[in-house]
């Protein structure tokens, strides 16, 4: 089965290096209060990664700007979600 990285490899991005547009507000909440950590399943770009120790790490480079992570984190509201700066982020060739 194809990994998501191989899919994202086909996509065009202009990454705003060092300025992630989405942030986890409080890492402790993910580790200790969020049982399902569902962002790690639902993100279509696999940006949220479960670390062995219960931590969740977010790397937004492959983000497709769908909004899923913000909306499904409705119990803890722990995602600080903005659009990338104008011109940055995913650049769909076809859409």
């Amino acid at each position: 089965m194809l990994k998501v990285e191989e899919k994202l490899f086909q996509d065009r991005y202009r990454v705003d290096a060092g300025r992630p547009h989405i942030k986890i507000k409080d890492a402790e909440t993910c580790t200790h209060q969020c049982k399902s950590q569902q962002c790690t399943v639902c993100c279509p770009a696999g940006c949220y990664i479960q670390e062995g120790n219960g931590k969740v790490v977010l790397i937004t480079d492959g983000c497709l700007e769908c909004g899923t992570c913000r909306i499904i984190c409705d119990e803890h509201r722990n995602v600080d979600w903005e659009w990338p700066r104008g011109g940055f982020g995913i650049l769909f060739k076809f859409g």
Partner: peptide
């Protein structure tokens, strides 16, 4: 073009990733 879409309330409750569903 081909794809699949499901409600987020359902995606929230299960263990299949969207890209696995597509594959």
């Amino acid at each position: 073009t081909l794809g699949v879409g499901c409600m987020l309330s359902d995606f929230k409750e299960q263990q299949v990733t969207p890209y696995e569903l597509l594959d």
